[in-house]
Amino acid sequence: MKKLVLAVTIALLLTMVSGCGDAQKGDAVTINVLNWGDYIDDETVDVIKLFEETTGIHVNYTTTASNEEMLVKLKSPDSIYDICFPSDYTIEKMVAGDMLHPLNKENIPNLSNIDERFMDLPFDPGNTYSVPYMWGTVGILYNTTMVTEPVTSWKIFWDEKYAGQILMYDSIRDTIGITLKMLGYSVNTRDEAHIREAEAALTAQKPLVKAYLDDPIKDTMIRGNGAMAVVYSGDAVLCIEENPDLAYVVPDEGSNVWFDNIIIPKTSRHTAYAEAFINFLCDAEIARANTEYIGYSTPNKAALALLDEERIADETYNPSQETLDRCEVFRDLGDFIEVYNKAWTRIKAA
């Protein structure tokens, strides 16, 4: 018996060793990609596989759930990542911390596919370090069978009628941001009094809230387990596809318009390969596959032109300029973020 166990163990070890050998035989370069969950097409077009097949570059793909986590991971002295997809204000922070590699645009000819409206944004003037990947708004996803009144204001999240049916986003800037908008302030306010007011509002709202969720908010809404939720427009597109009772609106008070962008950390040792990856993602067909799979809006003009007319006309997917004018982009708050963080911890701990 013991001999048998030993034989099996040795056999297993041998296959493992030979398995490793095979993987290294091609001497392929590996780039490490850190993305959000569910943020690249792996069904219709398997984007990563296609990239590996066309370029021979191996991709090691991992995901994370928040900008804050991305920042922590990239800051680590032994960070291995070559590509990452942080949001607008995080880019600003990374630029300030000298964490980003200036892109060699000669390696990214497909950059010309990006809509001029989404180039040269305040968080990265001249797109020195980043290329926009996806964009969208923050708004209210509501279930029309439970909410029959017209939804026009963030104030509906404070309506006691919907106690126990309200889902809030488990994210500091988004949730405090929409509260600031409701109160008539900027999402980038640096006034402690404004934050105190938002904190008081969110603490008072807590008894009405069913849960603070991040990704699971989509499933919960699709299955009709909540009357309304704070969501990103792209998630709203997906949810409405799954459950036609749902509707999305950007309230009159305005909201946040956000951009997730592709960057290369300074610690990357394969910048040219990483730029090849960025170029691949900016290809019109690839960008179309990604935007169709993810449901988030693409800043890629060439890809947008390839979409159905129905999709282009969808206000959730492709908001009008009038809606965009009501929205603000997040800016990095520097050390003032501490005030937001403390307020958030107090809200969550209450």
């Binding site: 804050e68 800051k75 069913k210 849960a211 969720l213």
Partner: peptide, 22 residues
């Protein structure tokens, strides 16, 4: 299981390290 509504000391510690980098 608590949907972020009942923060415990362990969650608080996790937040300080991972979310707030403090």
């Amino acid at each position: 299981l608590g949907g972020g509504m009942f923060m415990l000391y362990g969650d608080l510690m996790e937040n300080q390290f991972l979310l707030l980098n403090d």
